[in-house]
Simulated assay, not measured.
Amino acid sequence: MMTKRKYFAAIISACICIGAGSILSVKVNSASTTPGTTDDPVVTKSYVDQQIQKALGGGATNPTPTPSTPEQNSNEVKNVSLKPGQILVADAGTEFIVRSGHAVIYTEDSNGVADLTAGVDLLNGQAAPKNHLLSFPRDGRGIQVKPGQTSGLIVMVRGGYTVK
């Protein structure tokens, strides 16, 4: 009978030792990792951008080019007024939103302009809907006042453009 008690006590004490050891081990491991060290690094976006530029061979610290004129700042939204007969031609990646007036798509090739709001491709001469986000994937595409209209357009523009 005595051997059963000793056996049971030995099992209980072993379980207690194993449990206490795992708790202390977790506390010691978590205390040894300090944020910002090699065990737990903190990386910023600018650091990642610099490393990507170095890997691509351009040692520039600023990966985004600065625009030549304030009107061409890709983050700035400008309100542009067009008169009948004028064409607003976008640079690649520019976005337009027609706010007032009647506009049609202008392209010199068979490809069109992406209407991101409706999820369709608008071809040369098609109406550009108001309050739809239009994306211009290449240079040389734009919008103009619908032929026959006497009033102009007001267009919100994000990105580079020229008025012809």
Rank of each mutant, 00 (worst) to 15 (best):
K6L: 04
D91Q: 15
V113I: 06
R138E: 15
T66L: 06
N62W: 07
L82G: 00
S25Y: 12
G57R: 05
K27A: 03
T34G: 13
Q51P: 13
K4V: 04
T61N: 15
P67N: 07
T107C: 01
K45S: 06
S30E: 15
I23A: 13
T37L: 03
G152Q: 07
M2H: 06
S46D: 14
G119P: 12
G36F: 07
G101P: 10
R99Q: 04
A90V: 02
K27Y: 11
L153E: 04
A127Q: 08
A118Y: 04
V145E: 00
P41W: 09
S110K: 07
I11R: 04
T34V: 15
R5A: 03
V48Q: 09
E76N: 11
V155H: 04
P35G: 11
Q126P: 00
T44E: 13
V80T: 00
G119K: 09
T61A: 10
T107P: 00
R99G: 01
F136G: 01
Q149H: 01
S25P: 08
D139M: 07
L82S: 01
P41Y: 07
S46A: 10
V28W: 03
N131I: 13
C17S: 11
I11F: 11
G125C: 02
T37C: 03
V28I: 15
K4L: 04
P63L: 02
V43P: 13
F96C: 09
I18L: 05
Q149M: 02
T107W: 01
R99S: 04
V163G: 15
P67T: 12
E71A: 15
V145M: 01
Q72M: 08
T3R: 11
L24I: 12
P129N: 14
D139W: 03
E71L: 05
S74L: 13
P137Y: 05
G140K: 02
V98Y: 02
T44A: 13
K83S: 10
S25K: 12
S68G: 06
V145D: 00
S151Y: 13
G58N: 12
Q53T: 11
A92K: 14
Y47T: 09
Y106G: 04
N111L: 04
V157E: 00
H132C: 14
P35D: 07
Q51W: 12
G36E: 05
A103T: 10
G142Q: 00
P70G: 05
R158H: 15
F8D: 07
G19S: 15
Q53S: 04
T34M: 09
E76L: 12
D115Q: 07
A55T: 13
I11D: 13
